[in-house]
Computed example of a mutant assay.
Amino acid sequence: MDEIRIKQLEVFAHHGVFPEENRLGQKFVVSAVLYTDLRRAGLTDDLNHSMDYGAVCAEIQHYLTAHTFQLLETAAERLCMHLLRTLPLLRRIRLEIEKPWAPIGLPLNTASVCITRGWHTAYLALGSNLGDKKAYLDGAVQALREDEDMRMGAVSDYLVTAPYGGVEQDDFLNAVLRVDTLLPPHELLDRLHEIEQAAGRERLVHWGPRTLDLDILFYDDEIIADETLHVPHPEIPKRDFVLKPLAQIAPYLVHPVYHRTISELLDALHA
């Protein structure tokens, strides 16, 4: 990915743990690497296809002077999230905030915090087999669309499927969608649980009926296996009701464990 670099932008702001830092203010030095695709800008010589680094510098200066934080870590985190949410072409950012006048009582050139944040691509499964199933799926899609930490991508058709897991219950309505998210995997899972709870989800019977079920199928190419989260979802190759809608929106997506496309996994399931 291409880079736009901003080096040592000086900003006078009011961040710090001590009250006098918040009251009197001090100099901060900001450097950033903005990751984006500059190919179209290079071919067209048109600023609309790039990011105006002068405007980005002005936005950094405005944000850091309009807010007060105790920790550099918080200032860096909030500034990164603000820029990622407001700059449509920005995919990832590496940001360093230096504090040359850090009050530590020892000779020091500068103290700094450096973080990297960005958009990640996730594929989510949606299911419902209680009440107004379509309304529950529609509500989940809308909740994700309105979330400032999400950018909605393709949404599959809603498919009627038989229940899975051996529990006698009504048919499901299932779908899959693609979303870009600023949330790391476990925070994304927590956000999905919040949406489920808002829909009245109760976890009473394993593989039992539910108003709304949201699962993370893929998160970039990451492989995660811990007490709370398994990504890619381990049941993907066995589930027709996941592979069919996934093949609608991402047939050539490659499973990072099996190294086969979604279309190939679907064909293998029906072989």
Rank of each mutant, 00 (worst) to 15 (best):
E3A: 13
R5A: 14
K7V: 13
L9M: 07
L9S: 07
H14N: 15
H15F: 14
H15S: 11
E20M: 08
E21H: 00
E21I: 03
N22A: 14
R23H: 11
G25M: 08
G25W: 10
Q26M: 03
L34T: 06
Y35T: 11
T44W: 06
D45H: 14
D46G: 04
D46H: 04
L47N: 02
H49L: 12
D52Y: 04
D52H: 15
Y53S: 10
Y53C: 14
A58T: 12
E59I: 00
L64C: 04
F69C: 10
L71I: 09
E73I: 12
T74F: 02
A75V: 13
E77P: 02
C80V: 04
M81E: 13
M81L: 15
M81P: 00
L84A: 01
T86R: 10
R92S: 12
L95C: 10
E96L: 05
I97D: 05
E98Q: 14
K99S: 03
I104R: 10
G105R: 09
A111K: 01
C114D: 11
R117A: 14
R117H: 11
R117K: 15
W119V: 08
H120C: 14
H120L: 13
A125T: 03
N129P: 12
A135Q: 15
G139M: 00
L144E: 01
R145Q: 11
R145H: 11
E146T: 12
M150L: 08
M150Y: 03
R151D: 02
M152T: 13
G153V: 11
A154K: 15
V155L: 10
V155A: 06
Y158C: 04
A162F: 05
F172A: 07
L173V: 03
L173C: 06
V176A: 01
R178S: 14
T181S: 13
L182V: 14
L182N: 10
L182D: 11
L182H: 11
P185G: 04
E187R: 10
L189D: 08
L189T: 06
L189N: 08
E196P: 15
Q197C: 07
Q197D: 13
A199L: 12
R201F: 00
R203C: 03
R203K: 13
H206L: 06
P209M: 01
R210C: 07
T211F: 09
L214T: 05
I216N: 10
I216E: 08
F218M: 03
F218G: 05
E222M: 14
I223D: 00
T228V: 06
P232N: 06
P232V: 06
P232T: 06
P234E: 08
P237T: 01
R239S: 07
R239H: 09
R239G: 08
Q248E: 15
I249Q: 11
A250I: 09
V254H: 00
V254W: 01
H255L: 03
P256E: 12
V257G: 00
V257D: 00
R260S: 08
T261R: 01
I262Y: 02
S263T: 14
E264D: 12
A268Y: 04
A268W: 04
L269W: 11
